[in-house]
Each structure stands twice: as C-alpha cells, then as structure tokens.
Amino acid sequence: MLCDDCGRKEAVVHITQIGANGRVEKHLCESCAAGYNDFVPVQQDGRHVSVDDFLRGIFGSAQGQENKASGGTGELSCPHCGMSYRDFRQTGKIGCAACYDTFRGQLEPILRRIHGSSVHRGKIPHRSGGTLELKQTIAQLSQQLKACVEQEEYEKAAELRDKVRALKQELQQKEGGQDHE
C-alpha cells in the first residue's frame, strides 16, 4: 500500500483517528509520518518521541507487569542463543534446545494445555521397541532404587534391585548377549 500523502513510498505507519467527523484512516510512509506532529507524542521537555518508543511505553508497561507477576525483574533470555521469551511469544518458535530449560517455567503450562503433558512420549519403532522400552523401565527403576536408598527404605530398594537385575538379563538376551551396563 502506498503512502496517502506522497503516493511514492510504501506505507509503514497506519493511523486511525476517530472523532466527531467519523473515522479517518491515514496510511503514511516513514518520512511523511514524521511530519504529522498531531499523532507523534511530545515529551514535556519538547523532544519528539518516536512511534516505537511510544508503543513500547504503552505495551512495555503490560510486559513489566507480566515480568513482576512471573517473579522476574528483567527479561529472561536464553544464554545459548540469546532468544528472549518475548521473541518466542512473537514467533511461536524456540531458538535452540537450551531454550526449553531456560523458559521451562513459562513453557510447561503451555505444553500441558496443548498436548496434555509436558513430557515427550513419542512412538517407539517396532524393531527396537522392545529393547528401548526395557531400557526406559530400567532407568526409571534405577532412579526409584536410588531414591529408596537415600530414604533408607532398604526392603523396597532390595525389591527394585532384583527387578532391575531381571530386566537387565532380559535386555541382554534380547540384544544377543551383548553387555550394555
């Protein structure tokens, strides 16, 4: 869309003014928009405020309230790729694998709402499904075993240890006798 004033450049500022005369829309290029002092706010010291600063002031206050509600004082960003949570909200895409850890608090509720869970449970291929499932079960039982030992629940720990041993033997048989501990 071309600028309503000069008719040469692409319109980048769109202004809708509603008044006594009804609704008036203006589509302006950047240079023509700079000439409209009626629409560009001016600070008390007489300096003009850019449209970006004006909008950042309006929407930034909502962002600030959001940060206070989430307990953050500054904007959270990924240490690996530098992506901010605001960038994620605008694009809907995560920058890297480290973003999942960085934004875990904000992403978990979203993932639960969309997928019903925040843990990925993908399909298991048929040819490796049996051993993969066994490995996952062994890992879970090993974690439970460690927790039981830490809590000094030795009887339950002994039961879990026996289950882990049996599953490891079964795994070795399925994989052809290879040792995978």
Rank of each mutant, 00 (worst) to 15 (best):
E66V: 09
F103Y: 01
G82E: 09
C99R: 08
V51Q: 08
T102V: 05
L76C: 08
D101H: 09
H80Q: 15
Q63Y: 06
S84E: 05
G64A: 15
S61V: 12
S77P: 01
F103D: 03
C78K: 03
P109F: 04
M83N: 08
K68I: 10
G116S: 04
F103R: 00
S84T: 15
L76G: 00
T102M: 10
V51P: 09
S70R: 09
A62V: 13
G64N: 11
G72H: 12
L107K: 07
T73C: 11
D53W: 04
G71I: 06
G64P: 04
I114Q: 05
Y85E: 08
Y100K: 13
D53A: 11
L76K: 02
A97T: 12
T73K: 12
C96W: 00
G95F: 02
G71A: 04
A98T: 09
D87W: 07
I94C: 11
A62L: 14
G116C: 08
S70I: 00
K93E: 10
G60F: 01
K93A: 12
G72N: 13
L111Q: 01
A69K: 09
S84P: 08
C81T: 05
Q106C: 03
C99Q: 00
I114R: 02
Y85V: 11
A62K: 11
L107S: 04
Y85Q: 06
C96P: 13
C96T: 13
D52L: 13
L76H: 03
Q106L: 05
L111K: 07
P109M: 03
F103A: 05
E66L: 13
R89F: 05
G74N: 12
R113D: 15
G57M: 02
G64W: 01
R113A: 15
Q65I: 10
D52T: 11
G105D: 14
Y100D: 06
G71K: 06
R89V: 12
I114Y: 04
F88Y: 15
L107M: 11
R86T: 15
A97S: 11
A97E: 07
D52M: 12
S61D: 14
R112V: 12
E108L: 05
I94K: 06
F54S: 14
Q65L: 12
Y85S: 05
A98S: 08
M83W: 00
E108M: 08
R113Q: 14
E66H: 04
K68L: 14
I114E: 07
I114M: 11
M83D: 05
R89D: 10
G74R: 07
C78W: 00
